[in-house]
Nucleic acid binder design. Structure first.
Lengths: 218, 218
DNA sequence: CCCTATTGTGGCAGTCACTGCCAAGAAGGC
DNA sequence: GCCTTCTTGGCAGTGACTGCCACAATAGGG
């Protein structure tokens, strides 16, 4: 687990600095989520968030490309996980089911309300419903990532550059995920105390609807 | 103030004012596209665009919610057309093919290189490839519109509010469109003088790929 | 332990996107 | 003509974000 001490790699990042970096990133994200919840995105300044996170305003903007993006760290983690999974797909078996299974795995890993990332994910998606500027930022980073996924998938399958298939696979599977997450957020808000809606369930319902809609018959 | 003195319709827009409004909207959009092409989004200020469009900076921001959005008028037209089409769907026949046909119609209407909107669409999509901030804005407004489409579709079909089907239909069909438009932009850039890539063709190829990928067998 | 290259940080000044407010002109209804 | 309703421009202000620079903390040697 630890002791990667003797790296044959020339390497870039070192343990201590890296750890601190992750820590302040988390601090900033937490502060952003909290202040956004309390005062709304427009109701607090980047300075406020920086102060709450214990860093200078200048440093804040080194971590967060944008005030809004400060709260989007979690989605980055999820997309990292997905990207890693994409690299491990078997290119000569049907890809759609593999991608769907991958999403189930990724979502399951992050939905857990007891994990730190799971809780952040809830808070974020609750916020996304009320804050168009946040939603806009989320949608924009998501779009950037998808381009990368499609590229990776194209390389993996050896598709010619003008074959739309990899992009179609990425776009449609993530579209289904998006529907599931939206419904999840909706239900989180509708019944904050009620029975916890299950992200993976919702995703599987969305996949079912997708299958129905694309079934040859109707 | 007076109490509803006027007739049955409080009414909103009148011919002359409306026309002028459309005109300045177009002027601003044109100016934005031109300056973005010449200097890049970061290379020109909102003031520059306003001046080029012949309006004050203050007025510019009355039309363009955001500097970036000034260039996105065309996509708004397309989405208006789609939304209108959605209202005219037959809810008791399979919706996916209807939506696909609707997109063909909408795209055909706007791809024409000789129409003003067609030319603007080209310029915009060329820009989107090089300007992440523009792309981000485009993706964000697109997302807002999709929520409306899904709502309209849900109402049309009488789906229960927790049925993911309308959202799935909207998200997947627009995902396919997005792939087609991306390829279109890519080809526009790759061969600016070559044979004009046909948006409708590309869309139909994307639909074909979608069908293949979702076919029950593989 | 020290020396040095690298990296992370805060402060400062500046640009610019965007907003609220107000007064003035144009357009529509009478 | 009068009065109401947009629509606009100017002005002042807030705040997001950036480049620059000096300084502190680590990494990685000797």
């Amino acid at each position: 687990m630890t002791t990667e001490v003797t790296g044959p790699t020339p390497v870039g990042e070192e343990p201590l600095r890296r750890r601190r970096r992750r820590q302040t990133e988390q601090d900033i994200c937490e502060a952003a989520l909290t202040l956004f919840e309390e005062h709304g995105v427009a109701g607090c300044t980047a300075d406020d968030i920086a102060r709450a996170a214990g860093v200078s305003s200048r440093t804040f903007f080194r971590y967060a490309v944008t005030k809004e993006r400060a709260a989007l760290v979690v989605t980055g983690d999820i997309e990292d996980a997905f990207e890693q999974g994409v690299a491990a797909l078997r290119p000569d078996e049907p890809l759609l089911p593999q991608l769907e299974a991958l999403w189930v795995e990724v979502l399951r890993r992050h939905e857990n309300g007891r994990s730190a990332s799971g809780r952040q994910l809830r808070r974020l998606y609750r916020l996304l419903r009320a804050e168009p500027s946040l939603r806009g930022a989320a949608v924009a980073v998501d779009d950037e990532r998808r381009a990368g996924f499609a590229g990776a998938l194209a390389e993996l399958t050896g598709a010619t550059p003008d074959d739309p298939t990899p992009a179609i696979l990425v776009e449609t599977t993530t579209a289904v995920v998006r529907v599931a997450m939206d419904r999840w957020a909706e239900q989180l808000e509708a019944a904050p105390e009620g029975p916890e809606p299950d992200l993976v369930d919702l995703y599987e319902q969305a996949v079912a609807a997708f299958r129905t809609v694309t079934a040859p018959g109707a």
